[in-house]
Amino acid sequence: MKIAIASGKGGTGKTTLSTNLAHYLATAGNVVLTDLDVEEPNSGLFIHGKTIYETDIFKKIPLWKSGNCLLCNKCKELCNFNAITRILDEILVFPQLCHSCHACSELCPTNSLPMENKILGKLQQKRYDNLDFVESRLEIGEEQAVPLIAQTIDFIDEKFHHDYLKIFDSPPGTSCPMIEAVKDADFVILITEPTPFGFHDVRLAVEVVRKLKKNFGIIINRYGIGNNDVEEYCNEHHIPLLAKIPNQQQIAKLYSEGQLLWQHIPEVKRELDQVVAYLQNEGLMK
């Protein structure tokens, strides 16, 4: 079972929910938490433990071989991403701009651009208490988050048996990386704040998950601050409101220290139990 945790904007509590829910559920069953916010992976600041496995993740990029190259410029003209240029009698490839479409390589008349592996990021697997944790981190300067997310999900699929509960901490926003992270999920939890910003952004996220035809529910974080717009919206549109995490300064403090909340704050545990009850009721977990 795969559950993706997402939000329309950053800073609404996505990482807080992912880490706490995963760590809590791991006390009772097999759970793996995966941080797919590969540009700014922050779950690892809350989930410690020893690294038990580490691997580089690659993407394919063309590597220029000068030998037979006719300097015909075809590769440069083919590339829609400006990832290839010619400097005097040299062909230069910009790995960060390359989308690995293979067009230049396979259409080169002299096979002068074979595809080679280039490091895209690093995947680390950790074990913390009973929780398995995997995070991938994009190399600095790399912009291709989507292939790293896709390969990380492949790793999870291969390495963890299907009876594992798989929780994905997704990238913020509603653009391609977020879609890549939620498109294979069985259920999506959207977390937001009861404020005008939160309300505006969660509606965008709802549009995305609807377009992807996903089952989903909403959690309100910092409940009690702001207004009732999100709650009314959920009622009106028959969206399950899974939990309301209260607004407490103590939560902000523990978060700032990199601590998990559920063992310290009973209200948080109570709300996590609500989420669990919902998921069980829907047959999404045992």
């Binding site: 991403f81 400006n82 990832a83 240029t85 910009f94 701009l97």
Partner: peptide, 15 residues
């Protein structure tokens, strides 16, 4: 009009 790689493209003109 370029979505990506504006920098390398402008550099190319200088060369």
């Amino acid at each position: 009009n370029e979505s990506h790689g504006a920098g390398p493209k402008t550099s190319q003109i200088l060369l």
